[in-house]
Write a protein that binds this DNA or RNA. Sequence first.
DNA 1: CTAGGGTTAG
Length: 605
Amino acid sequence: MVLFYRKSTTLNLKASRLVQLHLLETGMLRNDILCSLSSFLSCCRQDFSSITDVKVCFRERLRSGLINIKKDDAVALFHSMIRSNPLPTLIDFSRLFSGIAKTKQYDLVLDLCKQMELNGIAHNNYTLNIMINCFCKSCKTCFAYSVLGKVMKLGFSPDTTTFNTLINGLCLEGKVSEAVGLVNKMVENGCQADTVTFGSIVNGICKSGDTSLALDFLRKMEESNVKADVVTYSTVIDSLCRDGCMDDAVKLLNEMERKGIKSSVVTFNSLVGGFCKAGKWDEGAKILKDMIGRKIIPNVVTFNVLIDVCVKEGKLEKAKEFYEEMIMRGVSPNTITYNSLVDGFCMQNRLGEANKMLDLMVGNNCSPDLVTFNSLLKGYCKGKKVDDAMKLFREFPEKGLVANEVTYSILVQGFCQFGKVEIAEELFREMVSCGVVPDAMTYGILLDGLCENGKLEKALEIFKDLEESKMDLDVIMYTIMIEGMCKSGEVDDAWTLFCNLPLKGVKANVKTYTVMIWGLCKKGLLSEANMLLRKMEEDGIAPNDCTYNTLVRAYLRDGGDLATSAKLIEEMKSYGFSADASTVKMVMDMLSDGRLEKGFLDMLS
DNA sequence: CTAGGGTTAG
């Protein structure tokens, strides 16, 4: 290959390309390495080549694929194109822009588009569509609309792709009804809505969480002359898997196949993930086998799903086995793979191994990102090493990382749990002044931390502001406040808030009821707490093991009402729950100082 | 040369 390059006649370049293809097909060289190599050789050639050869150089690059092109490389390529004479065609620029867009560097694409214009090269419909797509993917549909304006002003006609891109952008932003409105506009403009149009909308509906509406839409699509394809089916199948409706998901898969639409690796990834997340490991393994049987090759996402499920279940050894298997099968791990593994070690307080995994990650050319470092911060906080966490956090700028609301949440939570609530508050202020917008979860963590550290007044103040703001407060936030009030001994206020939840349009869940039951018990109002247990059942909320254990311990405490606790334990066992560690410890303590008789322990098991 | 589906963190 090097020899062919050295004497770069057209024939030799063709020969070199054949060698490259051979290397790729035989798997002797990875595509990204090959790209770098041919780019290097091309550059060497430039030293003694004419301007025509420079043109061949970038054409060659654009054709040989820009897979995973890095920023510096892309910028250099762009500049070599701008400098060449005659100028490259807009098709060449489109190829470059779309290659960069595939790596999700949308800002870079938009920046280069601007530079292209400044160099006197005018857009066409294609490059403008790419710009619209970049704005849409960055959730800036308003700017995408202004590009649409430019399309019209320049005398181009927006085509189906232009509208589909915008419709998808609106759906990504959650503006599904606006997207549907644009479908009408599209038809008015003489463009046909197609499978992609409806696919985007079905996806938008799924993302809004309304799977049954998405199913209705799919049916309507089928009735009209727009046939749904594997992408649209997979979208709905994925939603069903997320909802845990695995039977319906499999039914839809079969229906799709009956219609002659072949499932893909994406379809199966959703199903494998769905079964494993539902704890149905056997079914997960079965579907994985089914997938391989259908000659659908598991890819990096398949393994990432499997690894992540194992990590979440605490099955780190099994996760590592899948990691080994993916490498054995020639599937390259990516940043997400390592992020799951790093997170797994952090969650189990195995920080040394987490850092070793980080080294392995870097060694395998996967760049750690904000998610990686956020996991490490969480690990340090969990391991009570808040100082190490802070040190790592302060290294973010030099690593080129910009902390987000997750980063601050982890730190705020860490410092609150460590009893250093002032530092947590300081961090919260820093977050706001850095322009990071706290969301409901960030506030929840702060309020919980304040309550936990005896700062109920402060928490109430913030909570009042939040209630008056536009932020959507959910049941979790109210539960945190009810718990905070109970912890601070303000059980009456907690009860008032609890009773007012329906007025605020918030539905209490099992955690809310359990927290309120705990508060009532704390105040010694045991029969009221017991009544609340009955009330929650009436309200259609099933008590869980935590609810029962809370009440059982309350009745046991102070040598209290042993008969009622025994009755509650029997009831709890009949629902398949058992005494938790705290309850068992309490019983053991009471046995040892004689407040309980031996028989009580037998009842627990 | 452009458009729709799957994986990670609080």
